[in-house]
């Protein structure tokens, strides 16, 4: 009788433990994105333009260098910061200035920003400035989108392909 009772109690204890294991392996459900929302992701990798243009070395500068290092052109390594603005229906959604990475500030930056926005029709404006030698944004892009629920809209930036694009 005592053995039988023990087996019953063991079964109850195992059941409670497995119930806990099962429950927390799938529940409670987590709502990552509300039903009527979509996501806009701004994601690109880009190196800003050099802070100043390449120039010719003067004869004096060339003479001061060892013969094997007398490159007539001198180009600064440091890159410009990248300033980005994102507007949704003419309201500022995001703005940030990304400083170049690296010890000499000569690396590019990788940007990945995610924004939850209401689903539906929107106007998106993107602006980017990647040179300290220009006064205003040198890349501007505007697009009308119709976002479905849970849709992921990616904003990419590739200057060799003309700048911003969405997909």
């Amino acid at each position: 009788m005592k053995t039988g009772l023990r087996y019953i109690l063991q079964t109850i204890n195992y059941s409670i433990f497995m119930l806990i294991v099962w429950y927390f392996s799938v529940a409670p459900a987590y709502t990552h994105l509300d039903v009527c929302q979509s996501v806009v992701v701004l994601a690109f990798g880009h190196a800003g333009q050099s802070v100043s243009k390449c120039r010719k070395r003067t004869p004096e500068e060339l003479a001061a260098l060892p013969p094997n290092m007398r490159n007539p052109m001198i180009c600064p390594r440091e890159r410009s910061p990248i300033e980005v603005e994102l507007l949704l229906d003419d309201k500022l959604l995001f703005t940030e200035i990304f400083n170049p990475q690296g010890v000499s500030g000569d690396w590019g930056v990788d940007v990945y920003r995610r924004f939850n926005v209401p689903s539906g029709k929107h106007n998106l404006k993107m602006r980017l400035k990647d040179s300290v030698r220009v006064k205003d944004f040198n890349y501007i892009y505007e697009v009308d989108v119709d976002l479905k629920a849970a849709q992921l809209l990616t904003i990419d930036f590739q200057p060799e392909k003309g700048g911003f694009s969405v997909r």
Binding site: F24, V26, A29
Partner: peptide, 12 residues
């Protein structure tokens, strides 16, 4: 192309 909305997370 979409973002998962409701997820049955494994909380462990």
């Amino acid at each position: 192309s979409i973002v998962p909305s409701v997820l049955n997370l494994d909380w462990f």
